[in-house]
Computed example of a mutant assay.
Amino acid sequence: MTRVLLRASAAALLLLSTVLVGWRILRPAEVLDTTTAAYPLEVVTAPGVTGRIPVAPLIVDDRLRVYAAKNQVRADEPVYGKAVYTTRWSLRRWPEQLSGVVAEGTTVVSRWNDGQVIALDGRTGKVLWRADGPDAPDFAGHRTGAAVVWNPPGLRIAAGIVAVTEDQNLLGYDLSTGAQRFRVTLPAGCADAFTTTGGAYVCATGAYDLATGQSVANWPAGPFTPLGCQVAHSNCAGLRDAAGQGWLLGPALRRATALDSPDATVAAGLVVSAGAGTVTASADGTAPAWSWAGQARVLGGTSTTVLLLTPEHWLVGLDVQTGAERFRYHLAFGKEDDEWDIGGLMIAEHYMAVERLRKDGPTDPESPIYYYSTDTVLMAAY
């Protein structure tokens, strides 16, 4: 009888210990790991491929790489690293899921499925502010997290405002303080929005001032095609309206006939077209400023360079003033082949990240052969 009681007691203790361990591991928790290390200096390396990593980074201030996981946002350095390195800082929230991340300057803003909007100091990982908002979609970043850091659902940024949408609600938070600046109800059909360099939130039904949330008057009719956008469909420099007419975006709309062409976009402040074996650029959207002979896709631009990708996967950088080639190199890691297509892309001032999908591969991101390789994201410098 004593042995039976001892066995029963031992089993009960074991069960209790298992429950306690499970609770400690799985209980709701928020864990913030910050750093006191010196903020890394900005380093501009020679043009070329610098690394190959398995996850898509949000490049912050040309110094850090910020990654998204289902329950965590984290950063590493250096931005030109060949691999993913030891975490510099991280925020983990369990069981909440990370819905999206945007950044401006050194401020990194994360949105979670429970509605929390949390701003972190990219230099240290410390919380700058947090705000309550509407529930957000669950994590949908698949293996690389690219959709969460490069095109987060319902999360945009421009003009010092973080714009959050849920159904027909648009909320604007001050980037520096987290104070809610406005909350407005949008008309039906106001989806797939983007923000502009002039501080407007634009969707199919119109545009809204990010300073006030009020509708912008005298806006062309949508739906619109955003052009020359930065990461997260934010700070777009141009658009085409429902009639196919091109406009440059800033403090005010400016008609640009060169943007009427379907192969035209805005890069490095220029209207750039790539067609018929020639890339042409215009400063004002009318008279050409320079041209470059060759087949290429316009990827985007920086303050000094227009970035092109040739059919053979050569990255070409053209001087924004003259169109002269500043560099040209094969966009591949080592002896990799060119059997890939661009899935996602982020262009910063001196560095670029490219998510690669297998050419003619399956359309299901969960397929083991959907991505080009295990380390499918290329890091490149220019």
Rank of each mutant, 00 (worst) to 15 (best):
S215I: 08
E312H: 08
G301R: 04
F327I: 01
L248I: 08
L331K: 00
A348P: 00
T257M: 00
S273A: 13
S261H: 14
P288S: 08
V316K: 01
G334A: 05
E336N: 02
G246R: 00
A268G: 07
A274D: 11
L345R: 05
A211D: 14
D319G: 03
G294R: 06
E312Q: 15
I347W: 04
V271N: 02
L248M: 13
V320Y: 07
L210F: 02
A274T: 03
G301V: 04
S282R: 03
A243T: 13
R255K: 10
P288A: 04
G228C: 14
G222D: 13
D341C: 00
G213M: 10
K335F: 03
A211N: 13
L318W: 13
A243S: 15
S261F: 04
A256N: 10
L248T: 09
P220D: 15
A324S: 13
Y351A: 03
L227I: 12
G275A: 14
V271H: 05
L253A: 11
T225K: 00
L299Y: 12
A207T: 09
G323N: 09
A264G: 08
K335C: 01
L309I: 08
G334N: 07
P220C: 15
T310A: 02
A264Y: 07
E312I: 03
Q230A: 14
L307M: 12
V231E: 10
R297N: 10
P288M: 01
G300V: 00
P311T: 08
L307Q: 14
V316S: 02
E349N: 08
S261Q: 12
E325G: 03
L331M: 07
T225R: 00
G277F: 04
S303K: 10
A207F: 05
A267V: 07
L210N: 09
G277Q: 03
T280D: 13
L299W: 10
L331H: 02
L318N: 04
M346V: 12
G222C: 09
A252K: 13
T305I: 08
I347A: 06
W247Q: 11
A242P: 02
V320T: 15
V279R: 00
S234L: 06
L308P: 04
A293F: 08
L239Y: 08
G323K: 01
A293C: 03
F333C: 05
V266A: 05
G222T: 09
T265K: 03
N235F: 09
T304W: 06
A232I: 00
A232D: 12
